[in-house]
């Protein structure tokens, strides 16, 4: 089975800080990590490979430093990696991102299955998976929590707000994976040692056979035109004192609201 996993490198959310003066995100110096749910997608791929044989290719679009994320994926057990990196890709929305990823995936050769995370920790749109599927013209599933190879191709369970939908399609196909799918493995040092001998390809705009109006800011379908300020807060009054007093005061304020108890959340 030829499986491609899309991984995105994102800033570690625990380290993001806002400039107290301007209120904008401080972009420098934030450590980058693999988007966490992409590790679940990779784990799912490695498990499928274990059962069905084949090869796992990890792909990403990002600046040159994204090789670190790909190297980590190789250390976790992926067989090879490919990166799309070019100044022209900068400022991409999800459509331009998906066009680039689809070209990259096609560049790596024929595939049976593409796996993505359900959504990223930074942009968080959950759009890239299904958009990449549309451009690759393959059937797709989102929010997949269970998956196995079946006679017809692939069988999945999708999480929705109301319940679980089980579905099946032929291959090739694409699926976006949720956290509930598995517990991603950690790096095995013996596996990691092999990583530096694995293939890692890098492609630029030309290498992917794309033109600059298909990618990056120019190829995007949306653009950000304005940032509106967040609403002002209420500036809390701090309640201090012994825990008993605090609890009493809070309960008093709640009583003033005069709410009816709805009998709990059981």
């Amino acid at each position: 089975m030829e499986i491609v996993v899309c991984i995105k490198q994102v800033p570690d959310p625990g380290h993001i800080q806002l400039d107290p003066k301007t209120g904008t995100i401080i972009r420098g110096g934030v450590p980058a990590i693999i988007n966490t749910v992409d590790k679940n997608a990779l784990e799912a791929a490695l498990q499928l490979r274990k059962i069905n044989g084949g090869r796992v290719t990890v792909v990403s679009m990002g600046p040159p430093s994204t090789v670190e994320a790909l190297q980590e994926a190789l250390a976790l057990g992926a067989d090879r990696a490919a990166l799309a990196s070019d100044r022209a890709f900068a400022g991409a929305d999800t459509l331009a991102t998906s066009v680039t990823l689809a070209a990259l995936i096609n560049k790596t050769g024929p595939f049976d299955l593409v796996l993505c995370g359900y959504s990223s920790l930074d942009g968080g749109t959950a759009q890239v998976g299904p958009q990449t599927a549309a451009i690759l013209e393959v059937p797709f599933f989102t929010a997949v929590q269970k998956m196995e190879k079946s006679a017809a191709g692939i069988q999945v369970e999708m999480e929705t707000e109301e319940g679980v939908v089980a579905a099946e399609s032929s291959l090739p196909a694409l699926a976006t994976i949720t956290k509930g799918m598995n517990r991603p493995r950690g790096i095995r040092l013996s596996e990691a040692k092999k990583a530096k001998n694995k293939e890692l390809f890098t492609y630029d705009l030309q290498g992917l056979g794309l033109s600059d109006d298909q990618v990056g800011e120019k190829g995007s379908g949306v653009c950000m035109v304005e940032v509106l300020p967040l609403p002002a807060g209420r500036d809390a009054e701090i309640i201090s004192g012994e825990p008993e007093e605090i609890a009493g005061k809070i309960q008093g304020e709640i009583m003033k609201l005069g709410l009816q108890s709805r009998g709990g959340n059981k």
Binding site: T94, G124, A126, Q127, P130, Q131, T142, E159, T160, S220
Partner: peptide, 23 residues
């Protein structure tokens, strides 16, 4: 911006090659 809405809007926007804003 539900599981279904996200999936369908994304696929449609890409098919039509038009922009899409989430959430």
């Amino acid at each position: 911006a539900t599981v279904q809405g996200s999936a369908v809007s994304s696929s449609v926007a890409a098919t039509l090659r038009t922009g899409l804003t989430a959430h």
